[in-house]
Design a protein around this nucleic acid. Structure first.
Length: 592
RNA sequence: GGCCCCGUAGCUCAGCUGGAUAGAGCAACUGCCUUCUAAGCAGUAGGUCGUGCGUUCGAAUCGCGCCGGGGUCACCA
């Protein structure tokens, strides 16, 4: 059931009959009719003037007349300048609605791996990570909804100098403190020592600088820094004491992350650890050298020359034979391909790494991996605060756990003020506040186009009115309330409206049209990896429903037939709100 | 400096595969709860779509230049 296609074919016929010309079906495109004109679907006739050799108005009129005579779906038409507005019959919409069919979308199912989150283990998650996690999760859900097999993976950066900093600080000043003894989440505890390290390091650097050593040099030569580097060497050498400490402290961090992931409602099929992948990729270097794709410097470091592709030269192996970030990413990608045989691999990583991924994918192609075509960098903009960027070092970060707690508490406050929760147990209330607080946060982040940077104002961004998650959740709760009041089971409403004689109101038709559009929206969101398409759709749907709800009686409608139709319509809208929101990782309550 | 991204109402964002008088929300102002949840609905006000050329019957949308903001150009990750 596809009205565009049906009418498009008729337009092709019209061109044949009226102007004796063959036009391609694919070249016929319709758009939504503007609100201020009558009609559902509009054909812009300007492109056909050359063929018709008539004025825009006359051309539109002729095609309109043809369609009205030959397409049973067209009830009427009107012409405004070169715009042919077509009114689709109520019968068509009602039949679509009562058939309860999806206007199906064709999609090549594939196996898609989505990498997201990818945290460091030396500090807790902040708002930037939240955007990453929500995006990765939502994109995974959307891809799955259109029929792909999705494998969600996380790549944890659990090794390196930054972790040694936290370890060293804890060793020196921690007095054996644990998350239990400090009553702190593990990731926050580690973060505390990471900050402590920096605090202790600063005076050392200042001291060296006072002796006339350059800033850069001072940072490297400060005693604490030397100790941290020594610790990293011991880690790489497999020193048992260091490894044990590392395992213990990472364990704390993972417990902390697990709880944040749980709050955000995401899970991973597989977690990769850099401590296990950082040596990967070296054998690719040998292969690349043999293929002549890579070159070796006199100092025996290895690089690839991408200047012909308007990129730079990139080192892939240091002169001491150790690998770099890029090498590791190459190796990890190959390993993943071997393990899962994906068709697509999506990296959810901030846009500051655009260049890195451009290079990564290009090297994979040059090494001869065909599947590199299926690699994609889901690049997203930063989250900025009113006073600028978030920087961990400067403490200008919005902590994920604190933010979540704050959203939940605001939800509680708002709910208590409104006082609609009579009969709720304390647990039910607590669960609702979570649903609402997290709904507000997730929707706030996902409604904006991923590739754009976004501004988060802690004071103003927590809103529950207007274009927000709770507004949409509220609409769902409202619908469920109707069913409760009417003692109706939404699953078993029989809408037996007689579509021969009945007409539908503007509000009803708009809702049916939106239900009709859902698959197209989903497809669009999936092909552009953009959850914001779903977010904007579900907002529009909720807004449209609220209008319908306000303007027309549902339970109070006296005609049984019409009442059932409106109940059925409400049920279908509720379903769509629920499934759309679930794609965004947002739950919808039945009461609020 | 080279390359990449962005610039739409006071604020936060839609619209961008070219189409009609550029849309929402927030903030401001005004109405609507003895009627299915007012976290709602309706309305007023707010825009030379950064700017200048160009392509086109038609440009917020495409191209080029300029201005402004951000990112990135490690044998760091």
């Amino acid at each position: 059931m596809n009205i565009e296609k049906t009418l498009g074919e008729k337009v092709v016929e019209a061109a044949k009959t009226l102007y004796n010309t063959t036009i391609e079906l694919s070249s016929v495109s319709f758009q939504k009719t503007n609100k201020e004109f009558e009609g559902d679907i509009t054909l812009v006739v300007f492109p056909y003037l050359k063929v018709s050799k008539k004025s825009p108005e006359e051309t539109a009129r002729q095609i309109g007349e043809f369609l009205k005579a030959n397409a049973p779906e067209v009830a009427a038409y009107n012409v405004v300048k070169g715009f042919l507005n077509l009114v689709v019959t109520d019968k068509f919409w009602l039949e679509f609605f009562s058939s309860n069919q999806q206007s199906t979308i064709h999609n090549q199912p594939s196996t898609t791996m989505v990498e997201y989150s990818s945290p460091n283990t030396n500090k807790p998650l902040h708002l930037g990570h939240v955007r990453n996690i929500l995006l990765g999760h939502a994109v995974s859900e959307i891809l799955q909804a259109v029929g792909n097999k999705v494998i969600k993976v996380n790549l944890v950066n659990d090794r390196g100098i930054h972790i040694c900093k936290s370890m060293l600080a804890w060793q020196k000043w921690g007095n054996g403190e644990t998350p239990e003894s400090a009553k702190m989440k593990g990731d926050h505890l580690i973060g505390k020592y990471y900050v402590e390290f920096d605090k202790q390091l600063k005076p050392q650097i200042a001291e060296l600088k006072a002796k006339g050593i350059s800033e850069e040099e001072a940072e490297k030569k400060a005693p604490l820094m030397l100790e941290a580097q020594e610790m990293l060497r011991q880690w790489e050498a497999g020193d048992k004491e260091v490894i044990d400490l590392w395992k213990k402290m990472n364990g704390w961090v993972y417990d902390g992350f697990a709880s944040t992931y749980k709050d955000l409602g995401t899970t991973f099929e597989k977690t990769y650890y850099e401590s296990e992948t950082y040596l990967l990729g070296k054998e690719l270097i040998e292969m690349g050298l043999q293929k002549g794709v890579l070159q070796r410097n006199p100092d025996s470091s290895v690089f690839i020359d991408l200047t012909a592709d308007k990129l730079d030269k990139k080192i892939l192996l240091r002169s001491d034979g150790t690998s770099v970030y890029m090498t590791q990413d190459l190796g990890t990608a190959v390993k993943r391909q071997e393990e899962f045989g994906f068709d697509r691999l999506i990296y959810t990583v901030g846009n500051e790494q655009d260049y890195h991924f451009k290079v990564l994918f290009l090297i994979l192609k040059k090494l001869g991996f065909k599947w590199a075509e299926g690699c994609y960098h889901l690049s997203y903009g930063m989250v900025e605060l009113p006073d600028g960027k978030m920087k961990s070092r400067e403490g200008t970060v919005v902590d994920a756990d604190e933010l979540i707690a704050e959203m939940i508490s605001t939800a509680r406050q708002t709910s208590e003020e409104l006082g609609k929760l009579e009969g709720f147990t304390e647990e039910e209330k607590a669960s609702l506040y979570r649903t609402l607080g997290l709904g507000a946060l997730k929707y706030f982040i996902l409604k904006v186009d991923p590739k754009k940077k976004m501004l988060f104002n802690p004071k103003e961004s927590i809103d529950f009115n207007g274009n927000t998650g709770p507004f949409i959740q509220y609409t769902h709760a409202r619908i469920q309330s109707i069913f409760r009041k009417g003692g109706v089971d939404p699953g078993s409403i029989k809408s037996t409206i007689n579509d021969q004689q009945s007409t539908i109101t503007k509000q009803e038709k708009e809702l049916i049209k939106m239900l009709y559009n859902y698959p197209a929206v989903l497809k669009q969101a999936a092909t552009t990896y953009n959850p914001a398409d779903v977010a904007n759709y579900v907002y529009d749907l909720a807004k449209e429903y609220n209008q319908f709800y306000h303007d027309l009686p549902i339970l109070k409608e006296e005609k049984e037939e019409l009442k059932n139709f409106r109940l059925a319509l409400s049920a279908r809208v509720a379903e769509k709100i629920k499934s759309s929101m679930n794609l965004l990782g947002i739950e919808v309550p039945d009461r609020m």
